[in-house]
Design a protein around this nucleic acid. Structure first.
Lengths: 188, 188
DNA sequence: AGCCTGATGTCAGTTCATGACATCGAAAGA
DNA sequence: TCTTTCGATGTCATGAACTGACATCAGGCT
């Protein structure tokens, strides 16, 4: 028989999102999260570097997905095409968890500190994308701009999807945002 | 005779940047910053919402400059042109403080929390740009994408300028990044 | 059996952040 | 000039976020 209940990390994540939703991030203490998960405050900090990080456990996964997709894009795909393909793939993954994404996003948007952390995660995704592009032989400036632009697109599309009804597909939103960008930069 | 030394806020900003440079953000306590500025910890928090904010007092200025520049762009300028013009104007302002920008950026890049705050400020600049574009009659999706793209450009250009020698001009870096973007999105 | 490992617990301490109230020059009005 | 009000700062107290050091103990390994 195991000494402890399994999946402490997952229990902490669930407890945290529940409490943030109920009473907000600020009004929730780590002791409360830990208690609801049947653990102690100290153990929380063994699983998450700080209080906010408990909502961002999935971002490493997303990063791997994006870099993998860029690496596997057709050899003749342009940098921006590769980025677009990667973002749409990531969009498909997130699509599967629309209800969860909504709860999580509501909590994030209700709190400045969480918004900060989200932006950092997006920026690190941009870095990962740029690195993946360079591995394809894309020059550094192009890689950086393409990656940052991709994240800019995502930042435009994601809130629309989160706010939309369940039938709206995130990959479609992303495609639409890319089309908008091409319209903006097209010669008159 | 004044009851207190003038410019408490500025003294706190100077003391903070000095200490962050000397021993790093983490190893600096607010009590130390306040003491060096001849004030108390409590007063620090009357001037800045938290410890990081002491490095970001200028961002409101930058936001006003950007929104003003967008508003004053020629009526026939495209959204992206208006954003580009605003960014170059902001670039000129920052150019005047290259040495300060370097010290500040070194401190920021040495600490994850400060990096977070910087990203938030950039995101709020993106929001401000988008709002200014909508005031010009630009539709919401175009405004959002143009603004986010502009900030993406800035994020690509700014580190290059900070790392470059004193003769490098930030507006030039921004123009170059825009040119890179147009190259990326141009039809083959 | 005996040892080791690793996830968790316990406890003490530092720092960040905020609320409540006190202080006292200076500006403004009677 | 006297008095009042105001605003920037100080003092004190407290809660909550984090961190380091050490203890515990089931399960696996030899």
């Amino acid at each position: 028989m195991a000494r402890w209940e399994p999946n402490a990390r997952g229990r902490l994540e669930d407890a945290a999102l529940d409490l943030f939703t109920e009473r907000g991030f600020d009004k929730t203490t780590i002791a409360e999260i830990a208690q609801r998960a049947g653990l102690t405050e100290r153990t929380f900090f063994r699983h998450f570097a700080d209080k906010r990080e408990v909502l961002f456990g999935g971002s490493a996964l997303l990063r791997d997905l994006l870099t993998g997709a860029v690496a596997e894009a057709p050899a003749d795909a342009s940098p921006l095409d590769a980025v677009a393909a990667a973002l749409e793939k990531a969009g498909s993954l997130l699509q599967e968890r629309h209800p969860y994404a909504r709860r999580r996003q509501a909590a994030i948007e209700a709190n400045e500190e969480l918004l900060e952390r989200e932006l950092v995660k997006l920026a690190s995704l941009a870095d990962a994308l740029a690195t993946a592009l360079r591995s394809r032989g894309v020059a550094a400036p192009e890689a950086s701009v393409a990656a940052e632009t991709g994240i800019a697109i995502f930042r435009s599309a994601y809130p629309l999807w989160v706010a939309a009804d369940d039938s709206t597909q995130l990959p479609d939103c992303i495609r639409a945002a890319f089309a908008t960008l091409r319209g903006l930069t097209a010669p008159e």
